[in-house]
Design a protein around this nucleic acid. Structure first.
Length: 211
DNA sequence: ATTTTCAAT
């Protein structure tokens, strides 16, 4: 069942300011995370939960989300008894920045140890990914290995977020200038980041050769 | 041409 409380909806201006995917995102000193949690309760029955979070002093929003996980996903680790069924959840989140290196490590560890929990990440902008050798780039590759797919948000994702998380007061989503071009540019960039790097190729080759 | 980044002042 879906219940929309006004208090869980993002103000329109906040959404637009923080999710605009411009190249030089000056002043975005906060990160927003809009999430949908789906829980499979039967062969053809799902429940939904959704909302948004913002980073708090000293705590990146991804780690804040992990803190709320137990409340969002009851029964994720079983209910304490023996032999009870672990529940399965899938989470989709839409973040204004992609995760930093540290958050990526933490998320990779967490999600590779929790196979009954799936995460898909959509991001509006790439955080500190300009340098070829940035740790943030490593982090995104690490997430992929842990089964967490990261995707750059496109028009349909912004549209979905607007419909789902924003206190839009029935107004339609008005895309900003260059939304599409920026999205395509960032998607290409992420694609390049996800290509296995050369040293990794060498490592695989060495492994094949038994070296 | 150059600009920014889960702040720090």
């Amino acid at each position: 069942m879906i219940t929309k409380l006004d208090s869980v909806l993002l103000p329109r201006k906040k959404f637009i300011f923080h999710y605009t995917n411009m190249r030089w995102a000056r002043g975005r000193h906060e990160t927003y995370l809009c999430f949908v949690v789906k829980r499979r309760v039967g062969p053809d029955s799902l429940t939904f939960d959704f909302g948004h979070l913002r980073n708090r002093s000293g705590c990146h929003v991804e780690l804040l989300f992990l803190r709320y996980l137990e409340a969002l996903c009851p029964g994720l680790w079983g209910c304490g008894g023996t032999g009870e069924r672990r529940l399965s959840y899938s989470i989709t989140w839409f973040c204004s920045w992609s995760p930093c290196a540290n958050c990526s490590v933490r998320l990779s560890q967490f999600f590779s140890r929790t196979p009954n929990l799936r995460l898909r990440i959509f991001v509006s902008r790439l955080y500190f990914c300009d340098m070829e050798n940035s740790r943030e780039r490593d982090g995104l590759r690490m997430l992929k290995k842990a089964g967490v797919q990261t995707t750059v948000m496109s028009y349909k994702d912004y549209f979905y977020c607007w419909q789902t998380f924003v206190d839009r007061k029935k107004s339609n989503f008005k895309p900003w200038e260059d939304l599409h071009q920026n999205s395509v540019r960032l998607a290409r960039k992420l694609n390049r980041i996800m290509q296995p790097c050369e040293t990794e190729d060498f490592r695989d080759a060495f492994e094949l050769l038994g070296l």
